[in-house]
């Protein structure tokens, strides 16, 4: 059983049939200073209260239920039917959540992203209706490639906080701040253009592709909820925990390959947020709290 403590937050990584990036995400949380449990979604559906034990929640990548019908669709449906109240409670107590790739696809269809307009306004009975989608790449093909990303440093997103290494010269930053993308249905689409503008205005687009490999609207790579605690993205920070994951590390000078990788920095930022009292199993409503912690 997890023992949440300020020193070592507890992370829950949720897997199901077809999840295949769970080990990477567990490792990411562990390297970032959390302890991580990998739990099958069926066990959580049997006892949703287990979610209450965790400070952070991760939805890893893969092909949940074969991505039959659409990527993440069946997982989203099952979460909606069985686990929304527990996830809502986690959101309300300020637990950072991350959905990577297939996890992002599920969170979007579940309605946890982009979430309610105002932080904390989670409807009680059912999650907000789906308002954005991730669908077939414009090439209609699966793409595995690395891409440079742009970070909105004004976003409330706790996961991308400090991701841009301001110490580095811009040219070096551009060589390092890359993310691996591996998806067939990664193209971001908002239901309406206005919807996307609204998200941008509220700084809920913390990450964009520098090069739009999959044809996403607004080059959106990831979005967060209004509180900045729940973040979903198509790229895989969990595959960029070591410098030797970098696509051309053999060309990088040694000094650029030191410290945390950008992938690990993301998990570190969320774990540190919890450690600094952002969530830590407390029952505070996160809205103002997380803003306070960010300063």
């Amino acid at each position: 059983m997890p023992h949440p403590s300020a020193d070592q937050p507890a992370a829950l990584v949720i897997r199901t049939a077809g999840t295949n990036c769970d080990a990477e995400m567990v490792r990411a949380f562990e390297l970032a200073g959390a302890r991580a449990d990998l739990v099958h979604v069926d066990r959580l559906i049997e006892s949703p209260a287990r979610l209450d034990d965790y400070d952070l929640i991760g939805f890893p990548g893969g092909f949940s239920y074969g991505d039959d019908v659409a990527s993440g669709r069946v997982l989203a449906m099952r979460l909606r039917l069985h686990l929304y109240p527990a996830l809502r409670a986690a959101a309300l107590r300020g637990a950072p959540m991350i959905g990577v790739c297939n996890g992002f696809q599920a969170l979007v269809q579940l309605g946890m992203l982009p979430g309610p307009e105002r932080a904390g306004d989670w409807p009680e009975d059912a999650p907000p209706a789906q308002s954005v989608a991730l669908t077939d790449n414009i090439s209609a093909r699966f793409i595995d490639d690395w891409t440079a990303v742009e970070i909105d440093e004004q976003s409330p997103c706790v996961w991308t906080r400090g991701l841009v290494d301001s110490e580095l010269p811009e040219e070096a930053r551009a060589r390092v701040l890359l993310m691996p993308l591996a998806s067939g249905e990664g193209r971001f689409v908002a239901a309406t253009d206005e919807g996307l503008k609204e998200l941008e205005r509220r700084r809920q687009v913390p990450m964009r592709y520098a090069e739009n490999l999959n044809g996403s609207m607004g080059r959106v790579a990831g979005i967060c909820d209004a509180s900045g605690l729940i973040f979903g993205l198509m790229p895989h920070p969990d595959r960029y925990l070591d410098w030797m994951n970098h696509p051309f590390w053999t060309r990088l000078p040694g000094e650029l390959r030191s410290g945390d990788t950008p992938g690990l920095r993301m998990f570190r930022a969320a774990v540190e947020h919890v450690k600094s009292g952002g969530a830590a199993g407390s029952s505070t409503i996160q809205g103002s709290d997380s803003k306070g912690a960010r300063v």
């Binding site: 990036c21 093909r141 793409i143 691996p180 696509p247 060309r251």
Partner: peptide
Amino acid sequence: IVRQYDHEVQGATLIKPLVGAEG
């Protein structure tokens, strides 16, 4: 072909099938 394959899942691919400045 190579870019249709997920050659990095499991996060342990250190030298990828396509290498260099632009992969």
